[in-house]
Design a protein around this nucleic acid. Structure first.
Length: 402
RNA sequence: GGGUCGGUGCCCGAGAGGCCAAAGGGGAUGGGCUGUAAACCCAUUGGCGUAAGCCUACGUUGGUUCGACUCCAACCCGGCCCA
């Protein structure tokens, strides 16, 4: 192995959980370099939700590294699979999507993924799996299914656990891994990326590829990013996520709210800092945790909005939360100068969802008007131009008389 | 198909005719402490109403009752056991 390949390998290993397997990856890299032929790096996207968050970017960033090393990203939009429903069978609320919705989601998804990936034509290929699955015959599907045994399928934890706990496993669920594996065959993937939750599916791809006489893909799994709550994986439905379209101030604020012990994880998975540097940053004896977190926030915001926006977001944060000042911008609410009850006022400003909630907030001392707390929800307030209403620490509204 | 158990607020879960907007926990939110970190402490956690109070809610639809989350019937959905 040449020194260059060694270096590449080291970079690519960073932040991964497992590589199946490293020797094959080194071979593929060497071959690719020798033949001057880019590797095809596969990533399957689930177009059931239009927004992507930092959790998705962990894998996308790994993909970007491959691109930067000259390889080709092949994104597969699972439009066919998405139409069937939820593969885990656990999420019963997930609605079946129409092809229009899927297409719309896929489009937004790609736009957002473009913030991480290199989208130039020779570095990125986007495919929809309906392209081949719509034409697939039952006989062909059976042949695919014949590549794996039931016992092999049952190795998958989520199947095994559900069987043990008498939770339904539907027959069609066996088809998903097979179909994903067939995707790899069609696009001739060299490497497939995915979260650890996809390990099984992606490994099935290796077997299916072998069954079709292809050299099996290398499977690289990335950690699942923990959400803001520090417990569960980052996901939209849990509300513990940072969206890539979140505004700089929000994004920064959310990062500041993560707990200290999550910083190392976020630094490793979401930034390019070297390992030693990160070790220094997360060591409270060397760096004040708050300073480290500010750096983390700035770095991440800068990835999406540039350095200047990141600086501004950090400054704004400092103003509001450290110095207790007002934000530069807040929603402006047009009202007439008629006196209204405080609870009604909060409603009109959109600061609370209901009158009862407004009363609660006032009683709990969470509401201030022009900086001074109010204590009576029934107090009459006459709106004035420029009057600032604050609820809790982060909800503001400014009144404009019409 | 038969038997059996169950479906309660954001989630889990207690309640078994009035004292139930429904214990307890989790989560969330507000306040305190801080670095909008964690931990911790206090409080709040259906809607409307200044208030007294009213309305809506315990799978669905009907019924019994002065009164039903609690009893009855049918139906829908789920678990388990048997076939």
């Amino acid at each position: 192995m040449t020194a260059d390949i060694k270096k590449q390998l080291e970079l690519l290993k960073r932040g991964t959980i497992e590589i199946f397997n490293e020797v094959e990856l080194a071979e593929k890299l060497t071959e690719s370099a020798g033949a001057n032929k880019p590797l095809r790096i596969k990533l399957g996207l689930d177009p059931t939700s239009p927004d992507i968050h930092l959790g998705h970017t962990v894998v996308l960033r790994k993909m970007r590294q491959f691109q930067d090393l000259g390889h080709k990203a092949v994104l597969i939009i699972g439009d066919y699979t998405a139409r069937i429903g939820d593969p885990t069978g656990q999420n019963t609320t997930r609605p079946m999507l129409t092809s229009e919705q899927i297409e719309k989601n896929a489009k937004t998804y790609l736009e957002q993924a473009g913030k991480i990936l290199d989208t130039s034509a020779h570095k990125l290929e986007v495919r929809h799996n309906s392209e081949w699955f719509e034409k697939l015959t039952l006989m062909e599907m059976i042949q695919i299914a014949a590549k794996k045994t039931v016992a092999q399928m049952l190795q998958r934890d989520s199947f095994k656990l559900r069987l043990e706990n008498d939770i339904d496993v539907y027959t069609h669920e066996f088809l998903y891994p097979l179909m994903q594996g067939y995707d790899s065959v069609v696009i001739k993937s060299d490497v497939e990326l995915g979260g650890t939750d996809q390990t099984f599916n992606n490994l099935v791809g290796r077997d299916i590829q072998r069954g079709y006489g292809q050299k099996p893909q290398v499977v690289i799994t990335m950690p699942i990013l923990v959400g803001l709550d520090g417990k569960e994986k980052m996901s939209k439905s849990k509300g513990n996520y940072i969206g890539v379209t979140d505004q700089p101030n929000d994004m920064f604020g959310k990062i500041m709210s993560i707990s200290d012990d999550m910083m190392e994880n976020y630094f490793t998975l979401l930034t390019d800092f070297a390992g030693e540097k990160i070790a220094e940053l997360v060591n409270p004896n060397k760096t004040h945790p708050k300073e480290a977190k500010i750096l983390l926030g700035k770095t991440i915001v800068a990835q999406f909005y540039g350095d200047q926006a990141a600086q501004l977001a950090a400054a704004e944060f400092d103003n509001i939360f450290a110095k207790g000042q007002l934000p530069d911008e807040m929603p402006e609410i047009k009202l007439t100068a008629e006196p209204v009850m405080a609870s009604k006022l909060l409603m009109s400003c959109g600061l609370v969802p209901s009158g009862s909630e407004a009363k609660r907030m006032v009683k709990q001392g969470g509401v201030s008007v022009n900086g001074s707390k109010i204590s009576d929800p029934n107090e009459q307030i006459t709106p004035k131009d420029g009057m600032v209403i604050q609820v809790g620490k982060r909800k503001f509204a400014k009144i404009k008389i019409k």
